[in-house]
Amino acid sequence: MKYFAVFLPMLSIEKSQEYRSQHLAFLEKKRIEGKIFANGRFVDGAGGLVIYMAQTEEEVKEIVLEDPYVIQKARGFEIHEWDMVTDAVLKTQK
């Protein structure tokens, strides 16, 4: 399994607000399918980042092209294979 960092730069604040619930539902579906390692927005409004888990970049591109944000041109996208290195121990917040 490989990791791919997908930067979703802001193209339209209005469209991002309009399609936010659809985008979040899409991410939840992909999370349940085991395709997402992590995701979140940039607090400066630049867009967001999704770390996908897949075998190939083409597989990730197919997934990203299904994202309502991308379909509606609320966000662009850049895909980069990510060689994750970590010794972090992740804890869930309560």
Rank of each mutant, 00 (worst) to 15 (best):
T92N: 11
A74L: 03
E81G: 09
G47H: 05
E58S: 11
M1H: 11
I36H: 07
G76N: 15
V50M: 03
M84A: 10
L90S: 11
Y52P: 04
V64F: 02
P68A: 09
E59D: 12
F26I: 03
E57F: 02
G47K: 06
V64T: 00
D67S: 04
V43Y: 13
L11V: 05
E78W: 07
W82L: 15
I32P: 02
E78C: 09
A5E: 00
P68M: 09
V64P: 01
K94E: 07
S16T: 10
F77R: 06
F77S: 03
Q17I: 10
E28K: 15
L8I: 00
D44V: 07
M1T: 11
G40H: 04
D67Y: 04
F26V: 00
E33I: 09
E66Q: 14
E57D: 04
W82N: 05
Q72A: 11
G40K: 08
L11C: 04
I71V: 15
A38R: 09
E18C: 06
T92K: 14
M1Q: 11
R75L: 05
F42N: 04
M1L: 12
H23L: 03
E59F: 05
V64I: 07
M84T: 07
E59Y: 07
L24Q: 08
E81Y: 07
E62A: 13
I71A: 04
R20D: 04
G47Y: 01
H80M: 11
G40Y: 07
R41K: 11
F26L: 05
V43K: 12
F26N: 09
Q17P: 00
E66R: 07
V6Y: 04
E59P: 01
S16N: 00
V89N: 11
G40D: 02
P9N: 03
E78S: 13
I13G: 04
V43A: 13
V43H: 10
F7C: 03
L24G: 00
D83H: 12
E59H: 07
A38K: 10
M10V: 03
A25V: 00
F37L: 14
Y69C: 06
E78I: 15
G45W: 01
M53P: 00
Y69L: 09
K29I: 05
S21N: 13
W82M: 12
F4Q: 05
E57V: 09
P68E: 00
Y52G: 06
F7S: 12
V70T: 09
L27Y: 03
M53Q: 13
P9R: 02
L24T: 03
K94R: 09
F26C: 05
F42D: 01
S12N: 05
G48P: 01
G48V: 03
V70D: 02
E59M: 06
Y52K: 09
F7D: 06
I32C: 06
H23K: 06
E18G: 04
A74S: 07
K61W: 02
V85I: 13
A54E: 11
M84G: 08
Y3H: 12
L8C: 03
I13C: 01
G48E: 01
E81M: 08
E78K: 15
I13W: 08
E28H: 13
T56R: 08
A54L: 06
K30R: 15
V85T: 14
E78N: 12
I32L: 15
F26S: 04
T86Q: 12
D83K: 14
M10P: 01
T92P: 04
Q22V: 00
Q55R: 14
E28Q: 15
G34H: 08
V89S: 10
L65G: 02
I36L: 08
S21Q: 15
F7A: 13
